[in-house]
């Protein structure tokens, strides 16, 4: 990973590629994001929230999509994490948001994923949560953690 300069903490942007279906590297993007935020010496509470929402969105891409990108944007007021994927999309967002609802297959559930908690976790920990999806195309998830 390229070195992070602490002075970048008010102006930083980076995109990470996420491969769908590959659980070997699941979590690597959120681990990188957490490490970048820690190096910038951001408050632990914000690092913790960002780690949770980026992990859940990364696992969603790995579990359901063909591929995706997670974009981290930091400015003086917010930490913004966007998860953009090419995948099946979500036909009923309201239903998908219900805690416990999941379309995960047996293999995913056996690993302890697919409990239907991911999106509700994201909603709980992000200050702004915006989800749009197009069936057959993909899903766009925007999560913002306020710094002030």
């Amino acid at each position: 990973m390229h070195p992070v300069d602490i002075t970048e903490k008010n102006n930083y942007q980076r995109s990470f590629y996420v491969e769908g279906g590959n659980f070997t590297y699941a979590g690597i993007v959120s681990t990188s994001i957490k490490s970048i935020l820690k190096k910038m010496d951001l408050p632990v509470d914000l690092v913790r929230k960002s780690a949770i929402v980026s992990y859940e969105s990364e696992i969603n891409i790995v579990s359901y999509a063909k591929k995706g990108v997670i974009k981290l944007t930091i400015d003086s007021r917010t930490i913004q994490i966007e998860a953009i994927d090419e995948g099946p999309g979500i036909p009923d967002i309201e239903l998908a948001m219900q805690a416990g609802y999941s379309t995960a297959d047996q293999r995913i559930r056996e690993m302890g994923f697919g409990a239907g908690m991911g999106l509700s976790n994201i909603k709980r920990y992000a200050d702004v949560f915006d989800l749009t999806s197009e069936v057959g195309k993909g899903t766009y998830l925007k999560m913002i953690i306020n710094r002030i």
Binding site: A26, G27, T31, R48, I52, A115
Partner: peptide, 25 residues
Amino acid sequence: LSDVMANSQEGDIWITRQVHQNIVA
């Protein structure tokens, strides 16, 4: 894993039956 992500704390010892590598992340 989502339950552990949401509800465990820093410094916790995590007790689980999962054995695959994703527990490390």
